[in-house]
Amino acid sequence: MWKYIAKRLAMISIVIAGVTLVAFSAMYLAPGDPAEVIALARYGEDLSASQVETLRVAEGFDAPVHVQYMIWLGHLLQLDLGKSLVTSEDVLTEIRQKLPATAELAIASLLISLLIALPAGILGALRKNTLLDKSCMFVSLVGVSIPNFWLGLLLIWFFALTLHMFPSYGYGSLKHIVLPALTLGTSMSAVTARLTRASLLEVLGQEYIVAARARGFDERTILFRHALKNAFLPVVTFAGMQFGYLLGGAVVVETIFSWPGIGKLLVDSIFAMDFSMVQGCVLFIAVLFSLSSLAVDILYAVLDPRIRYDRRD
């Protein structure tokens, strides 16, 4: 297993190196001279040429691009993501401040999605092709097709504006998290439910399930002891990919609900053309995503003895 983890780690370092390059070069996507764009954002329309030049030198935009990248990378290795070009706040500090809100939202959404998806998927597989199963799967297909921003607006309209049960935006109390987490959680649950069902159905068709039945076990023992552990293996892998969806979805949901997390920070920074903040956020999210896939891979190896005890030659 250690060999496997080492291999994954090596792979991820290569990927993260590439990620830094993408994050850095994103800045050059913006049309025009970055110094000018920033100066525009910082000082408004009536800026002078000298202001632009001062900024260019101050922020290091006068150096060749590859030198800029090297300098940036050097700072990065010391965990220095630079300062916001707009507010001059330290980027890493800013991200660290926003992290708890995003983490809370992510955990709450994940819980909600699993609470909906696992029972629905398991029930669907056990009662295959019944009305219950078919309606579950139909609802989940509709669920996959509903964009989370629309679902968010719908929830706001219903629970906040009509019933006044939960606040429509903001952060702080437990009540605030309900709508955003429900938005993200339900939209994620649709896919997980389908995957759980498909995976459990496949497992239930395996010969070892028949063999377990032949040993006289009742269906409950078979489901819980023999089927679910196998069926959850792909669901666990999938959870890693869903983490990416969670982070992506958070951007949209945080914006709708004014949730002060990293997603909202990213969108705000893009609007402000705050390149260093955008770089920082994107890099942070990508690294977080990569590490979560690594964690999932390790978890998978722990759960699946076929990988855990890979031949060590």
């Binding site: 990927v15 982070l247 992506g248 951007v251 990213l266 994107v282 999210i285 990508a286």
Partner: peptide, 8 residues
């Protein structure tokens, strides 16, 4: 693929 694609 290391970036959640909506974010990229």
């Amino acid at each position: 693929m290391a970036f959640p694609n909506i974010i990229l």
